[in-house]
Nucleic acid binder design. Structure first.
Lengths: 119, 119
DNA sequence: CAGTATCCGGCTTGATACTG
DNA sequence: CAGTATCAAGCCGGATACTG
């Protein structure tokens, strides 16, 4: 894509965590407990099986998520954050902090607008 | 979108910086100097005017970028990071660090694969 | 110079059905 | 249970032309 040597490395990082459901998947897996496919599906009520599979495969491909298959019937598959994936936690943490502040800021702005509107 | 109370706040943060060119735009503006529309365009050789406008408008809407119009002919418009926008710097910094490490890791993996392939 | 306006293609996501 | 396969829709971004 872009060749710019140093500057586009956060694009790389973003690619690993961007996707409609990836942040949510990561959030739940970061709770620590390994989760089964259907447990994740239940936690993400609006996701389709297809998207859950796709995103999990991508995260697995990046080495962020570990997939463990228990050979039994009915099948059991558990997903968890890899040790490497844990290295994302500073990113998720700063994103979370900033997102929180950003929402509060927006609500403030809206409140101000309500004020001036009433004149 | 999702109602999940606390957990989706990094989605909010991501929304503010995700977009094909937003990270690059931010990168250049974070250098400190205000940049004119065409200067940004020159720094982002493959961006279209349309996308540059759209992304700048979005960043402006979020309060991250400031747009200053100098009323003169030919028009002059300067873009710069707002003080609020500066609060993104921890995010960009961690993303950058992680992206760098992630690339190196991938190259390592590739090298390993080359080794085993030669058997 | 700094944009808009239109039109269009592709990739991401969604819906639904099927399976070991 | 944990997926795959197929098809279709929607949104993001690209190309191009036009303008105060």
């Amino acid at each position: 894509m872009q060749k710019n040597p140093a500057q586009c490395q956060f694009v790389v990082a973003l690619d690993s965590i961007v996707g409609k459901w990836k942040p949510m998947i990561l959030y739940h897996l970061f709770q620590g407990e390994p989760l089964r496919f259907n447990e994740l599906k239940r936690l993400l009520p609006d996701i389709t099986q297809r998207m859950l599979t796709l995103h999990l495969r991508e995260l697995e491909g990046e080495g962020i998520v570990k997939r463990v298959v228990y050979p039994q019937v009915p099948p059991k598959v558990e997903y968890s954050i890899t040790e490497y994936g844990m290295s994302l936690s500073p990113i998720l943490e700063t994103l979370h902090q900033w997102g929180k502040a950003h929402i509060e800021r927006k609500q403030l702005k809206n409140a101000e607008n309500e004020d001036t509107k009433s004149d």
